[in-house]
Amino acid sequence: MTASTLASPGDTAAGPPESRRQRRKRERLQEQAAAIPVHLYGLRRGTVTLITVACVLFAIFTLVPVAWIIINSTKSQTGIFSSFAFWFSRPFDFFHNFALLFQNVDGNGTYFQWFGNTVLYAALGGGGATALAGFAGYGFARFRFRGSKAYFYVIVGALLVPVAAITLPLYLVYAKAHLINSIWGMILPSLVSPVGVYLMRTYVDLSVPRELIDAARIDGAGEARIFFRVALPLMVPGLMTVLLLSVVAVWNNYFLPLIIFTKNSLYPLTVGIGVWSQVAERSGGNSDLYPLVVMGGLVTIVPMIALFLVLQRYWRGGMLLGSIAN
């Protein structure tokens, strides 16, 4: 008997390649089929209704600020103050506000500059934090070295320290290290992500089987090659989670840039809009800056939503499919 005749029984042939649409649809249906229908939960009808109402109320509560910022981004300065806060009013100034946002309205560096700064800090800080978390998480999950447990507990401990608590000491160190008004002052602390390391360690433990690493060792791969060629592709969904979390953290960071930057041209969006907002308040409610503060806030959150949507496709199951039997 030849091997090819042996190959047939029980072997499943993969059909014609599916299109992206077909695959999405199949995955959605599979997900639906995997979930237990609500009427089988063993809950009483009244309980289900109650939980649903509670969820809806919570969703409304969470979405109110988003609704407010969208509605008010369409208003003129007087509209913001004189009309009902949760409905539209004339004139419809959305595009006017949007265009104005990217012009030099205050004469000293502008929204556009801050936007660029934020993108730079988030890309370097968030990207770097993700890379470091990937290395460290893999190391903690798959190597035993002297003090590895102790180091890991230190990192878990760091999870419990609020960032605000270390900002002042950080400032004092920075003053000595000439990191005030330096972009490195913003980026270096952003590279350290205890949550990221913790998440990646857990993720590697669950998704990179030891046997796979052993197999690669037997196959003669060096440790670096094992990491990049074998482990890293399996770590992608976890890394994307860490990337999203750390980019959002840098994007939204307000306190750190507030104390280390004194130059307008170095501000990220958070601090810049804060400055506009203060200026507007000092003018006692008739500043032209109000619509820009609102529109600036709206434009600030859009890239994060986009990032989430882009990264979403990495959070699909089945990465290990076919690697390890049962």
Partner: peptide, 14 residues
């Protein structure tokens, strides 16, 4: 210079 076949195959899934 040894090769090993693992109980669960340990193929590189990607």
């Amino acid at each position: 210079d040894v090769a090993m076949i693992f109980q669960n195959y340990a193929l590189y899934p990607h």
